[in-house]
């Protein structure tokens, strides 16, 4: 499984859009971490939250997580002020592994 994370917007929007997507390849992760990631992807796919920031938000970021898992592919989009807890959990997990 391969996940890529692209970030747009935010106070440093002109910089964020020039940074390449970050890629997490699960080949290097232990099996239990991959299982957990699949569980988080399934939960976030079922309920990613709103795709756009709530209208009064300023400088909010939007995230696009693309998941390639064998023949299956999915793209999840949400933002700082509209993401569901499931999307937040997936984003946090991906960012921790990228770090």
């Amino acid at each position: 499984m391969r996940l890529s994370l692209a970030t747009r917007g935010g106070m440093a929007a002109p910089i964020a859009r020039r940074l390449p997507p970050q890629v997490l390849d699960t080949d290097r992760l232990p099996d239990d971490a991959v299982r957990e990631l699949r569980r988080l992807v399934a939960a976030a796919s079922a309920d990613p939250g709103g795709a756009h920031p709530a209208p009064p938000a300023r400088d909010a970021m939007t995230y696009t997580i693309t998941v390639d898992d064998g023949p299956r592919s999915a793209t999840l989009v949400s933002s700082d002020t509209s993401m569901s807890p499931a999307f937040a959990a997936l984003l946090d997990h991906v960012q921790r592994h990228l770090g």
């Binding site: 970030t7 935010g10 106070m11 440093a12 964020a16 709530a54 209208p55 009064p56 938000a57 300023r58 400088d59 909010a60 970021m61 700082d80 002020t81 984003l91 946090d92 960012q95 921790r96 990228l98 770090g99």
Partner: peptide, 11 residues
């Protein structure tokens, strides 16, 4: 958040 590169006003 985790390693969050931003500050924002949420309304």
């Amino acid at each position: 958040g985790n390693r969050y590169n931003n500050a924002f006003w949420d309304g």
